[in-house]
Write a protein that binds this DNA or RNA. Structure first.
Length: 106
DNA sequence: AGTGTGACTTGGG
DNA sequence: ACCCAAGCCACAC
């Protein structure tokens, strides 16, 4: 497995309950500031096998990015379930729930 | 090798 | 706040 992929997985697993990170943030923490789309690919293919909290990753505007209705519904359910407010249109207040204290990672 | 494809981001109107 | 055009990058065909 590619080291970048490995780091992305670690970063995502480090997002605590009740918080979210954007794709760009995750990419940056993993060492590739322009790698947001790779984060997408990784979540899409490895979230299940690696037991990742994929629902804690949202886009830069603080919205649920996924299009599929089913998964979209599950994500809002998971988030609200752990204390993150999600508006009817799938928006989240980043000022409030964005996770930034990830300096402890290498 | 060339092209199309995203659960993206940023900058400008 | 919303829409769009560019830029982005690994991967599947």
């Amino acid at each position: 497995m590619q080291p970048y992929t490995q780091r992305v997985i670690e970063v995502i697993k480090a997002i605590p309950e009740g918080y979210v990170m954007t794709y760009g943030q995750v990419a940056g923490q993993a060492g590739s500031p322009r790698g947001a789309r790779q984060v997408v690919r990784i979540l899409h293919s490895m979230s299940e096998s690696h037991n990742l909290p994929w629902h804690r990753v949202v886009n830069a505007k603080g919205e649920i990015a996924i299009k599929d209705e089913e998964a979209r519904y599950r994500q809002t359910l998971y988030l609200s379930g752990e204390g993150v407010e999600v508006s009817g249109s799938g928006r989240i207040d980043l000022e409030k729930y964005r996770y930034t204290e990830m300096d402890f990672i290498d």
